[in-house]
């Protein structure tokens, strides 16, 4: 295999339809090692379907997806190549955590000693002999992550890993993702929460209605989609508006406030002051990533909440 493809997940015109419904519509992306790639989209956008196709669980209707440069099913020991946590926990409730990891290890020729290692890594050693059916959602999630790490794979793929976790668990997943990426592994994490992604991801792939809406480093995404302006309020707002216009700035009047782009707040304050005008407010307003995400996916959300109160 081509070693330059180690640690990559590569989708080409990947498409999946269920009946007449298109879940994933000809998407292309390449996920690279050494960073956390966030896979962001509203529920029903096609994230889980894409991840199932990566693991060969669902067959693409057309297009291809490769892991480390080849089809998933062509790997003789896939758990050593990519570890996946899927949304459904995929654990038998009657089997202990340790036995669950034991059969997974055996299936890919992974030494049994690794079972203890991953149990310790996710903090489940003390309950390893308990049946997984008794686990809380958070413990189940940790077991799923242990299973994903069993083969010490170069790629780790987590579908909504923070779902059901308490704040401490959420922090743990974040730092684990960071640590794995810093070790040079490929980390691919899905979420429907922009706020979560902004804390975890280095790179963002935004998906809506089965199509890639954005694929860029998170800073670029913020710069491009999260706009900011300076809110200016003044008793002489007409004069201030004329002054700022005269300097070639972008000024929009909304009610009694002016929204100014093109100059930072201190500079605007100095400019207005040095022209002898009064200021009542001078505030930098940043639209959040959440806003940017909402704006970007607004047309692609499957089920819109109706605006206003239901009659």
């Amino acid at each position: 295999m081509n070693s330059s493809l180690t640690g990559t997940i590569c989708a080409k015109r990947l498409t999946k339809t269920f009946g007449n419904k298109t879940a994933v519509n000809g998407i292309d992306f390449t996920i690279e090692p050494g960073r956390v790639t966030g896979f962001l989209g509203p529920n029903g956008a096609g994230k889980s379907t894409t991840m199932r196709m990566i693991l060969g669980l669902d067959a693409p209707t057309s297009g291809t997806v490769t892991v480390n440069g080849h089809r998933y099913a062509d790997s003789p020991a896939p758990l050593r190549e990519i570890g996946g946590l899927l949304e459904a926990h995929a654990v038998h409730p009657g089997r202990s955590a340790r036995d669950h990891l034991r059969w997974m290890a055996a299936s890919n020729g992974i030494p049994t000693t690794r079972v203890g290692e991953v149990l310790e890594l996710v903090g489940l050693e003390s309950v390893a002999g308990q049946r997984a059916g008794r686990f809380s959602l958070g413990m189940g999630q940790r077991l799923g992550i242990a299973a994903a790490l069993i083969g010490d794979p170069p790629i780790v793929m987590l579908d909504e890993p923070v779902n059901g976790l308490d704040p401490e668990g959420v922090r743990w997943v974040r730092s684990l993702a960071r640590q794995l990426a810093d070790e040079g592994k490929t980390v691919f994490v899905s979420s429907h929460l922009m706020s979560e992604m902004s804390l975890m991801a280095d790179h963002l792939i935004v998906i809506g209605r089965g199509e890639v809406l954005a694929d860029s480093p998170i800073q670029d995404f913020m710069a491009e989609h999260a706009s900011s302006y300076v809110r200016v309020k003044s008793p002489q707002s007409t004069d201030v508006e004329a002054l700022l216009w005269g300097r070639g700035l972008d000024v929009v009047r909304v009610d009694d406030e002016l929204r100014v782009q093109g100059l930072d707040a201190p500079a605007i304050g100095e400019l207005v002051g040095s022209n002898g005008m009064l200021l009542h407010e001078l505030t930098l307003v940043r639209s959040s990533l959440e806003d940017a995400f909402m704006e970007l996916t607004a047309d692609s959300v499957e089920y819109h909440a109706r605006a206003g109160v239901a009659a």
């Binding site: 995929a90 654990v91 997974m104 890919n108």
Partner: peptide, 15 residues
């Protein structure tokens, strides 16, 4: 395995 979703783990381990 189908009832619990375990089949996905099984097929991920042995495609």
């Amino acid at each position: 395995e189908y009832g619990t979703g375990l089949i996905r783990s099984t097929l991920a381990a042995t495609p």
